[in-house]
Design a protein around this nucleic acid. Structure first.
Ligand SMILES: [Mn+2]
Ligand SMILES: [Mn+2]
Ligand SMILES: [Mn+2]
Ligand SMILES: [Mn+2]
Lengths: 218, 218
DNA sequence: TATATTTGTTAGGTTAGCCTAACTATTATA
DNA sequence: TATAATAGTTAGGCTAACCTAACAAATATA
Protein backbone atom coordinates (compact mmCIF):
# COMPACT_ATOMS: atom_id res chain seq x y z
CA UNK A 1 0.00 0.00 0.00
CA UNK A 2 1.08 3.52 -0.76
CA UNK A 3 0.39 6.60 1.30
CA UNK A 4 0.36 10.30 0.49
CA UNK A 5 3.08 12.70 1.65
CA UNK A 6 0.49 14.24 3.94
CA UNK A 7 -0.42 10.94 5.55
CA UNK A 8 3.27 10.15 6.05
CA UNK A 9 3.83 13.50 7.71
CA UNK A 10 0.94 12.92 10.10
CA UNK A 11 2.27 9.50 11.08
CA UNK A 12 5.80 10.75 11.59
CA UNK A 13 4.57 13.60 13.73
CA UNK A 14 2.33 11.39 15.86
CA UNK A 15 5.31 9.15 16.48
CA UNK A 16 7.55 12.04 17.51
CA UNK A 17 4.98 13.57 19.84
CA UNK A 18 4.40 10.15 21.36
CA UNK A 19 8.12 9.80 22.04
CA UNK A 20 8.29 13.27 23.51
CA UNK A 21 5.32 12.66 25.78
CA UNK A 22 6.71 9.33 26.87
CA UNK A 23 3.18 7.91 26.52
CA UNK A 24 3.29 7.01 22.80
CA UNK A 25 0.14 9.10 22.54
CA UNK A 26 -0.67 12.45 20.98
CA UNK A 27 -3.56 14.93 21.17
CA UNK A 28 -5.39 16.65 18.33
CA UNK A 29 -4.21 20.18 19.16
CA UNK A 30 -0.61 19.14 19.71
CA UNK A 31 -0.60 17.44 16.37
CA UNK A 32 -2.23 20.41 14.66
CA UNK A 33 0.36 22.80 16.11
CA UNK A 34 3.22 20.57 15.12
CA UNK A 35 1.96 20.19 11.55
CA UNK A 36 0.94 23.83 11.20
CA UNK A 37 -2.66 22.96 10.37
CA UNK A 38 -5.91 23.61 12.24
CA UNK A 39 -7.35 21.06 14.69
CA UNK A 40 -10.35 20.54 12.42
CA UNK A 41 -8.06 19.27 9.68
CA UNK A 42 -6.45 16.84 12.10
CA UNK A 43 -9.78 15.39 13.19
CA UNK A 44 -10.64 14.80 9.57
CA UNK A 45 -7.33 13.11 8.80
CA UNK A 46 -7.58 10.94 11.92
CA UNK A 47 -10.76 9.41 10.59
CA UNK A 48 -8.97 8.50 7.41
CA UNK A 49 -5.89 7.13 9.17
CA UNK A 50 -8.15 5.10 11.42
CA UNK A 51 -10.03 3.64 8.46
CA UNK A 52 -6.66 2.65 7.03
CA UNK A 53 -5.78 1.04 10.37
CA UNK A 54 -2.74 3.24 10.92
CA UNK A 55 -3.91 4.78 14.20
CA UNK A 56 -5.96 3.79 17.21
CA UNK A 57 -8.43 6.57 17.82
CA UNK A 58 -11.83 7.18 19.36
CA UNK A 59 -13.73 10.45 19.35
CA UNK A 60 -12.29 12.75 22.06
CA UNK A 61 -9.66 10.16 22.84
CA UNK A 62 -5.87 10.11 22.52
CA UNK A 63 -4.16 9.18 19.28
CA UNK A 64 -1.84 6.18 19.12
CA UNK A 65 -0.13 4.49 16.21
CA UNK A 66 -0.95 0.90 15.28
CA UNK A 67 1.91 -1.47 14.47
CA UNK A 68 1.80 -0.74 10.72
CA UNK A 69 1.41 2.96 11.49
CA UNK A 70 4.49 2.92 13.69
CA UNK A 71 6.49 0.97 11.12
CA UNK A 72 5.63 3.50 8.47
CA UNK A 73 6.52 6.41 10.75
CA UNK A 74 9.88 4.86 11.54
CA UNK A 75 10.54 4.27 7.87
CA UNK A 76 9.93 7.94 7.08
CA UNK A 77 12.25 8.93 9.94
CA UNK A 78 14.88 6.52 8.64
CA UNK A 79 14.70 8.12 5.20
CA UNK A 80 14.79 11.63 6.63
CA UNK A 81 17.91 10.95 8.68
CA UNK A 82 19.73 9.05 5.95
CA UNK A 83 19.13 11.88 3.50
CA UNK A 84 20.35 14.42 6.05
CA UNK A 85 23.48 12.34 6.48
CA UNK A 86 23.97 12.16 2.72
CA UNK A 87 23.62 15.92 2.32
CA UNK A 88 26.01 16.56 5.19
CA UNK A 89 28.63 13.93 4.44
CA UNK A 90 28.64 13.85 0.66
CA UNK A 91 27.30 17.16 -0.59
CA UNK A 92 28.95 19.54 1.90
CA UNK A 93 25.73 20.88 3.36
CA UNK A 94 26.03 22.41 6.82
CA UNK A 95 23.97 20.85 9.60
CA UNK A 96 21.54 23.77 9.65
CA UNK A 97 20.68 23.33 5.94
CA UNK A 98 19.88 19.63 5.77
CA UNK A 99 16.55 19.40 7.56
CA UNK A 100 14.43 21.39 5.15
CA UNK A 101 15.56 19.46 2.07
CA UNK A 102 15.24 16.12 3.88
CA UNK A 103 11.65 17.04 4.68
CA UNK A 104 10.99 16.57 0.95
CA UNK A 105 13.38 13.72 0.25
CA UNK A 106 11.93 11.59 3.05
CA UNK A 107 8.86 10.90 0.91
CA UNK A 108 10.59 9.41 -2.11
CA UNK A 109 9.15 5.92 -2.54
CA UNK A 110 11.81 3.35 -3.30
CA UNK A 111 12.97 0.64 -0.92
CA UNK A 112 15.97 -0.03 -3.10
CA UNK A 113 16.97 3.63 -3.13
CA UNK A 114 17.01 3.97 0.61
CA UNK A 115 18.79 0.70 1.27
CA UNK A 116 21.45 1.46 -1.34
CA UNK A 117 21.85 4.93 0.13
CA UNK A 118 22.31 3.38 3.57
CA UNK A 119 25.00 1.11 2.16
CA UNK A 120 26.66 3.99 0.28
CA UNK A 121 26.88 5.93 3.55
CA UNK A 122 28.28 2.80 5.29
CA UNK A 123 25.28 2.26 7.57
CA UNK A 124 25.55 5.39 9.73
CA UNK A 125 24.02 5.18 13.22
CA UNK A 126 23.46 8.88 13.82
CA UNK A 127 22.42 11.82 11.66
CA UNK A 128 24.14 15.24 11.72
CA UNK A 129 21.96 16.35 14.63
CA UNK A 130 22.85 13.33 16.76
CA UNK A 131 19.56 11.53 16.18
CA UNK A 132 19.70 7.74 15.80
CA UNK A 133 19.02 6.30 12.34
CA UNK A 134 16.70 3.25 12.25
CA UNK A 135 18.13 0.31 10.31
CA UNK A 136 16.30 -1.60 7.59
CA UNK A 137 14.38 -3.53 10.26
CA UNK A 138 13.30 -0.29 11.94
CA UNK A 139 15.57 -0.82 14.96
CA UNK A 140 17.43 2.14 16.41
CA UNK A 141 19.28 3.24 19.54
CA UNK A 142 17.16 4.66 22.32
CA UNK A 143 17.99 8.32 22.71
CA UNK A 144 18.72 10.12 25.97
CA UNK A 145 15.79 12.15 27.25
CA UNK A 146 17.89 14.35 29.49
CA UNK A 147 18.19 17.95 28.40
CA UNK A 148 20.85 20.44 29.36
CA UNK A 149 18.20 22.33 31.35
CA UNK A 150 17.99 19.40 33.77
CA UNK A 151 21.75 19.12 34.35
CA UNK A 152 22.88 19.97 37.89
CA UNK A 153 25.18 22.95 38.45
CA UNK A 154 28.69 21.77 39.24
CA UNK A 155 28.35 18.72 36.98
CA UNK A 156 29.55 18.15 33.46
CA UNK A 157 27.70 16.48 30.59
CA UNK A 158 28.08 15.67 26.93
CA UNK A 159 25.85 17.14 24.27
CA UNK A 160 24.69 14.22 22.11
CA UNK A 161 21.88 15.72 20.02
CA UNK A 162 19.62 18.71 19.42
CA UNK A 163 15.84 18.70 19.61
CA UNK A 164 15.14 21.69 17.39
CA UNK A 165 16.32 21.29 13.80
CA UNK A 166 15.63 24.84 12.64
CA UNK A 167 18.31 26.86 10.91
CA UNK A 168 18.12 29.71 13.41
CA UNK A 169 18.60 27.43 16.41
CA UNK A 170 21.41 25.41 14.86
CA UNK A 171 23.30 28.48 13.74
CA UNK A 172 23.03 29.85 17.27
CA UNK A 173 24.42 26.58 18.63
CA UNK A 174 27.41 26.88 16.32
CA UNK A 175 27.94 30.52 17.23
CA UNK A 176 28.26 29.45 20.87
CA UNK A 177 31.09 27.12 19.88
CA UNK A 178 28.95 24.05 20.51
CA UNK A 179 28.61 20.84 18.51
CA UNK A 180 27.68 17.17 18.83
CA UNK A 181 29.77 15.31 21.44
CA UNK A 182 31.09 18.50 23.04
CA UNK A 183 31.54 18.61 26.79
CA UNK A 184 29.47 21.14 28.69
CA UNK A 185 30.09 22.14 32.30
CA UNK A 186 27.18 23.68 34.16
CA UNK A 187 28.45 26.58 36.22
CA UNK A 188 25.17 27.96 37.53
CA UNK A 189 21.41 27.80 37.05
CA UNK A 190 18.96 30.56 37.97
CA UNK A 191 15.90 29.13 39.72
CA UNK A 192 13.64 31.99 38.60
CA UNK A 193 13.83 31.60 34.81
CA UNK A 194 16.14 28.67 34.22
CA UNK A 195 18.96 30.79 32.77
CA UNK A 196 22.22 28.90 32.89
CA UNK A 197 25.87 29.74 32.85
CA UNK A 198 27.78 27.00 31.08
CA UNK A 199 31.42 26.45 30.25
CA UNK A 200 32.34 25.42 26.71
CA UNK A 201 36.01 24.96 25.80
CA UNK A 202 37.03 27.01 28.79
CA UNK A 203 34.69 29.88 27.98
CA UNK A 204 31.63 30.87 30.01
CA UNK A 205 28.35 31.49 28.18
CA UNK A 206 24.88 32.42 29.34
CA UNK A 207 21.93 30.54 27.82
CA UNK A 208 18.14 30.65 28.26
CA UNK A 209 15.93 27.79 29.36
CA UNK A 210 14.37 27.71 25.89
CA UNK A 211 17.86 27.03 24.59
CA UNK A 212 18.91 24.43 27.14
CA UNK A 213 15.60 22.59 26.70
CA UNK A 214 16.70 21.85 23.15
CA UNK A 215 20.11 20.40 23.91
CA UNK A 216 20.07 16.66 24.61
CA UNK A 217 22.86 15.45 26.89
CA UNK A 218 24.10 12.37 28.69
CA UNK B 1 7.98 31.47 -7.62
CA UNK B 2 7.26 27.85 -6.85
CA UNK B 3 5.33 25.42 -8.98
CA UNK B 4 3.54 22.16 -8.21
CA UNK B 5 4.85 18.76 -9.26
CA UNK B 6 1.96 18.58 -11.70
CA UNK B 7 2.77 21.90 -13.31
CA UNK B 8 6.41 20.87 -13.62
CA UNK B 9 5.43 17.62 -15.31
CA UNK B 10 3.26 19.46 -17.83
CA UNK B 11 6.07 21.86 -18.71
CA UNK B 12 8.63 19.09 -19.05
CA UNK B 13 6.31 17.13 -21.29
CA UNK B 14 5.46 20.09 -23.50
CA UNK B 15 9.18 20.67 -23.94
CA UNK B 16 9.84 17.06 -24.90
CA UNK B 17 6.97 16.88 -27.36
CA UNK B 18 8.13 20.16 -28.87
CA UNK B 19 11.60 18.72 -29.37
CA UNK B 20 10.19 15.56 -30.87
CA UNK B 21 7.96 17.45 -33.27
CA UNK B 22 10.80 19.74 -34.27
CA UNK B 23 8.34 22.65 -34.06
CA UNK B 24 8.68 23.43 -30.34
CA UNK B 25 4.92 23.06 -30.25
CA UNK B 26 2.55 20.52 -28.76
CA UNK B 27 -1.13 19.68 -29.11
CA UNK B 28 -3.69 19.02 -26.40
CA UNK B 29 -4.26 15.35 -27.22
CA UNK B 30 -0.58 14.57 -27.58
CA UNK B 31 0.06 16.12 -24.22
CA UNK B 32 -2.83 14.26 -22.63
CA UNK B 33 -1.60 10.93 -23.98
CA UNK B 34 1.94 11.58 -22.81
CA UNK B 35 0.82 12.56 -19.30
CA UNK B 36 -1.79 9.80 -19.08
CA UNK B 37 -4.60 12.24 -18.39
CA UNK B 38 -7.67 13.19 -20.43
CA UNK B 39 -7.65 16.07 -22.92
CA UNK B 40 -10.16 17.95 -20.78
CA UNK B 41 -7.67 18.04 -17.92
CA UNK B 42 -5.01 19.41 -20.23
CA UNK B 43 -7.22 22.24 -21.46
CA UNK B 44 -7.88 23.21 -17.88
CA UNK B 45 -4.21 23.17 -16.92
CA UNK B 46 -3.26 25.16 -20.02
CA UNK B 47 -5.42 28.01 -18.80
CA UNK B 48 -3.56 28.02 -15.54
CA UNK B 49 -0.12 27.79 -17.15
CA UNK B 50 -1.06 30.60 -19.48
CA UNK B 51 -2.17 32.81 -16.62
CA UNK B 52 1.20 32.13 -15.00
CA UNK B 53 2.88 33.12 -18.27
CA UNK B 54 4.56 29.73 -18.69
CA UNK B 55 2.97 28.88 -22.04
CA UNK B 56 1.75 30.68 -25.15
CA UNK B 57 -1.69 29.36 -25.90
CA UNK B 58 -4.92 30.41 -27.59
CA UNK B 59 -8.12 28.38 -27.72
CA UNK B 60 -7.79 25.65 -30.38
CA UNK B 61 -4.21 26.72 -31.01
CA UNK B 62 -0.86 25.00 -30.53
CA UNK B 63 0.94 25.05 -27.18
CA UNK B 64 4.38 26.61 -26.91
CA UNK B 65 6.54 27.34 -23.89
CA UNK B 66 7.44 30.91 -22.96
CA UNK B 67 11.03 31.69 -21.98
CA UNK B 68 10.43 31.14 -18.24
CA UNK B 69 8.39 28.04 -19.07
CA UNK B 70 11.22 26.60 -21.11
CA UNK B 71 13.79 27.42 -18.45
CA UNK B 72 11.71 25.63 -15.88
CA UNK B 73 11.25 22.61 -18.13
CA UNK B 74 14.98 22.39 -18.75
CA UNK B 75 15.66 22.66 -15.04
CA UNK B 76 13.37 19.70 -14.32
CA UNK B 77 15.09 17.71 -17.08
CA UNK B 78 18.48 18.63 -15.62
CA UNK B 79 17.41 17.34 -12.23
CA UNK B 80 15.92 14.18 -13.70
CA UNK B 81 19.08 13.28 -15.57
CA UNK B 82 21.45 14.15 -12.75
CA UNK B 83 19.48 11.96 -10.35
CA UNK B 84 19.48 9.12 -12.87
CA UNK B 85 23.24 9.48 -13.13
CA UNK B 86 23.58 9.46 -9.36
CA UNK B 87 21.50 6.30 -9.01
CA UNK B 88 23.43 4.59 -11.77
CA UNK B 89 26.95 5.70 -10.88
CA UNK B 90 26.83 5.81 -7.11
CA UNK B 91 24.03 3.53 -5.96
CA UNK B 92 24.48 0.63 -8.37
CA UNK B 93 21.08 0.91 -10.02
CA UNK B 94 20.79 -0.61 -13.47
CA UNK B 95 19.81 1.71 -16.31
CA UNK B 96 16.32 0.26 -16.51
CA UNK B 97 15.61 1.09 -12.84
CA UNK B 98 16.62 4.73 -12.65
CA UNK B 99 13.89 6.48 -14.62
CA UNK B 100 10.97 5.75 -12.33
CA UNK B 101 12.72 6.95 -9.18
CA UNK B 102 14.09 10.03 -10.96
CA UNK B 103 10.53 10.88 -11.93
CA UNK B 104 9.99 11.66 -8.24
CA UNK B 105 13.40 13.06 -7.40
CA UNK B 106 13.26 15.59 -10.24
CA UNK B 107 10.77 17.66 -8.25
CA UNK B 108 12.85 18.21 -5.13
CA UNK B 109 13.19 21.97 -4.73
CA UNK B 110 16.71 23.01 -3.82
CA UNK B 111 19.10 24.84 -6.09
CA UNK B 112 21.96 24.05 -3.76
CA UNK B 113 21.15 20.35 -3.75
CA UNK B 114 21.18 19.97 -7.48
CA UNK B 115 24.31 22.02 -8.02
CA UNK B 116 26.18 20.14 -5.31
CA UNK B 117 24.98 16.87 -6.79
CA UNK B 118 26.27 17.99 -10.18
CA UNK B 119 29.65 18.75 -8.62
CA UNK B 120 29.66 15.45 -6.70
CA UNK B 121 29.11 13.59 -9.99
CA UNK B 122 31.87 15.70 -11.63
CA UNK B 123 29.58 17.53 -14.04
CA UNK B 124 28.47 14.61 -16.21
CA UNK B 125 27.36 15.47 -19.77
CA UNK B 126 25.16 12.46 -20.44
CA UNK B 127 22.79 10.38 -18.35
CA UNK B 128 22.70 6.54 -18.36
CA UNK B 129 20.39 6.56 -21.39
CA UNK B 130 22.69 8.78 -23.43
CA UNK B 131 20.59 11.92 -23.01
CA UNK B 132 22.49 15.20 -22.58
CA UNK B 133 22.39 16.84 -19.13
CA UNK B 134 21.78 20.62 -19.12
CA UNK B 135 24.34 22.55 -17.09
CA UNK B 136 23.49 25.14 -14.43
CA UNK B 137 22.81 27.71 -17.16
CA UNK B 138 20.42 25.35 -18.94
CA UNK B 139 22.80 24.69 -21.83
CA UNK B 140 23.13 21.19 -23.23
CA UNK B 141 24.38 19.31 -26.28
CA UNK B 142 21.98 19.01 -29.16
CA UNK B 143 20.99 15.38 -29.58
CA UNK B 144 20.94 13.41 -32.80
CA UNK B 145 17.46 12.97 -34.25
CA UNK B 146 18.35 10.02 -36.38
CA UNK B 147 16.89 6.71 -35.33
CA UNK B 148 18.10 3.26 -36.19
CA UNK B 149 14.96 2.82 -38.30
CA UNK B 150 16.25 5.46 -40.71
CA UNK B 151 19.72 3.93 -41.12
CA UNK B 152 20.45 2.58 -44.60
CA UNK B 153 21.09 -1.14 -45.10
CA UNK B 154 24.77 -1.74 -45.70
CA UNK B 155 25.84 1.15 -43.46
CA UNK B 156 27.01 1.14 -39.85
CA UNK B 157 26.04 3.52 -37.08
CA UNK B 158 26.62 4.10 -33.40
CA UNK B 159 23.83 3.91 -30.85
CA UNK B 160 24.10 7.05 -28.72
CA UNK B 161 20.84 7.08 -26.78
CA UNK B 162 17.42 5.51 -26.30
CA UNK B 163 14.09 7.27 -26.66
CA UNK B 164 11.97 5.01 -24.51
CA UNK B 165 13.04 4.85 -20.87
CA UNK B 166 10.72 2.05 -19.77
CA UNK B 167 12.05 -0.96 -17.94
CA UNK B 168 10.66 -3.41 -20.47
CA UNK B 169 12.27 -1.69 -23.43
CA UNK B 170 15.63 -1.20 -21.73
CA UNK B 171 15.82 -4.80 -20.56
CA UNK B 172 15.08 -5.92 -24.09
CA UNK B 173 17.91 -3.71 -25.37
CA UNK B 174 20.29 -5.34 -22.91
CA UNK B 175 19.08 -8.81 -23.85
CA UNK B 176 20.03 -8.08 -27.45
CA UNK B 177 23.57 -7.32 -26.30
CA UNK B 178 23.16 -3.62 -27.02
CA UNK B 179 24.29 -0.60 -25.01
CA UNK B 180 25.20 3.08 -25.35
CA UNK B 181 28.03 3.70 -27.84
CA UNK B 182 27.75 0.26 -29.39
CA UNK B 183 28.26 -0.12 -33.10
CA UNK B 184 25.33 -1.41 -35.13
CA UNK B 185 25.55 -2.63 -38.71
CA UNK B 186 22.34 -2.65 -40.72
CA UNK B 187 22.19 -5.83 -42.76
CA UNK B 188 18.72 -5.51 -44.22
CA UNK B 189 15.46 -3.64 -43.90
CA UNK B 190 12.04 -4.93 -44.93
CA UNK B 191 10.09 -2.25 -46.80
CA UNK B 192 6.71 -3.69 -45.81
CA UNK B 193 6.89 -3.37 -42.02
CA UNK B 194 10.29 -1.85 -41.30
CA UNK B 195 11.70 -5.02 -39.75
CA UNK B 196 15.48 -4.90 -39.71
CA UNK B 197 18.29 -7.36 -39.51
CA UNK B 198 21.18 -5.82 -37.64
CA UNK B 199 24.61 -7.04 -36.65
CA UNK B 200 25.75 -6.52 -33.06
CA UNK B 201 29.16 -7.82 -31.99
CA UNK B 202 29.20 -10.16 -34.95
CA UNK B 203 25.77 -11.58 -34.26
CA UNK B 204 22.70 -11.03 -36.41
CA UNK B 205 19.43 -10.01 -34.77
CA UNK B 206 16.01 -9.21 -36.08
CA UNK B 207 14.20 -6.16 -34.68
CA UNK B 208 10.86 -4.48 -35.29
CA UNK B 209 10.29 -0.92 -36.48
CA UNK B 210 8.81 -0.08 -33.08
CA UNK B 211 12.15 -1.09 -31.61
CA UNK B 212 14.41 0.67 -34.10
CA UNK B 213 12.34 3.86 -33.78
CA UNK B 214 13.51 4.04 -30.19
CA UNK B 215 17.23 3.71 -30.77
CA UNK B 216 19.00 7.03 -31.44
CA UNK B 217 22.10 6.75 -33.57
CA UNK B 218 24.74 8.85 -35.30
C1' DT C 1 -20.07 20.86 42.46
C1' DA C 2 -20.81 24.74 39.43
C1' DT C 3 -18.34 27.26 36.12
C1' DA C 4 -14.52 28.50 33.24
C1' DT C 5 -11.01 26.91 30.32
C1' DT C 6 -9.11 23.79 27.28
C1' DT C 7 -9.61 20.33 23.95
C1' DG C 8 -11.73 18.26 20.20
C1' DT C 9 -15.66 17.79 16.64
C1' DT C 10 -19.04 19.12 13.09
C1' DA C 11 -20.86 21.64 9.26
C1' DG C 12 -20.17 24.03 5.37
C1' DG C 13 -16.73 26.06 1.99
C1' DT C 14 -12.39 26.39 -0.98
C1' DT C 15 -8.74 24.88 -4.32
C1' DA C 16 -5.95 21.70 -7.24
C1' DG C 17 -6.24 18.21 -10.26
C1' DC C 18 -8.66 14.83 -12.14
C1' DC C 19 -12.93 12.66 -14.66
C1' DT C 20 -17.14 11.85 -18.25
C1' DA C 21 -20.37 13.39 -21.55
C1' DA C 22 -21.76 16.59 -24.67
C1' DC C 23 -20.40 19.94 -27.65
C1' DT C 24 -17.63 22.92 -31.19
C1' DA C 25 -13.86 23.93 -34.20
C1' DT C 26 -10.54 22.44 -37.48
C1' DT C 27 -8.71 19.49 -40.94
C1' DA C 28 -8.87 15.78 -44.19
C1' DT C 29 -11.28 13.37 -47.74
C1' DA C 30 -14.61 12.18 -51.16
C1' DT D 1 -17.37 22.11 -51.22
C1' DA D 2 -20.02 18.99 -48.35
C1' DT D 3 -19.17 15.68 -45.01
C1' DA D 4 -16.56 12.70 -42.07
C1' DA D 5 -12.91 12.32 -38.90
C1' DT D 6 -9.96 14.38 -35.60
C1' DA D 7 -8.74 17.71 -32.18
C1' DG D 8 -9.99 20.59 -28.58
C1' DT D 9 -13.36 22.83 -25.19
C1' DT D 10 -17.11 23.29 -21.80
C1' DA D 11 -20.10 21.94 -18.12
C1' DG D 12 -20.83 19.53 -14.22
C1' DG D 13 -18.89 16.25 -10.71
C1' DC D 14 -15.47 13.97 -7.65
C1' DT D 15 -11.63 13.56 -3.99
C1' DA D 16 -7.78 15.10 -0.94
C1' DA D 17 -6.45 18.41 2.05
C1' DC D 18 -7.08 22.45 3.79
C1' DC D 19 -10.01 26.41 6.17
C1' DT D 20 -13.52 29.15 9.59
C1' DA D 21 -17.23 29.36 12.73
C1' DA D 22 -20.12 27.22 15.78
C1' DC D 23 -20.59 23.73 18.97
C1' DA D 24 -19.79 19.79 22.43
C1' DA D 25 -17.05 17.20 25.61
C1' DA D 26 -13.55 16.87 29.07
C1' DT D 27 -10.84 18.86 32.51
C1' DA D 28 -9.31 22.30 35.79
C1' DT D 29 -10.46 25.59 39.20
C1' DA D 30 -13.07 28.39 42.42
MN1 LIG E 1 15.68 16.76 10.42
MN1 LIG F 1 7.91 15.67 5.21
MN1 LIG G 1 14.44 9.15 -17.47
MN1 LIG H 1 7.88 13.83 -12.61
Amino acid sequence: MDFSYTEENYLKTIFKIGLDNGTEEAGTNELAASLSVKPASVTEMLKKLKSKKLVHYEKYGKIKLTKPGRELAIDVIRKHRLWETFLYEKLEFSWDEVHEVAEELEHIRSKKLINKLDQFLRYPEYDPHGDPIPNEKGVFQKQSKKTLSKAEPGTSCKMVAVKDNSTSFLQYVVSLGLGINNKIKVIAREEFDGMMTIEINGENKSVSQKFSDNIIVI
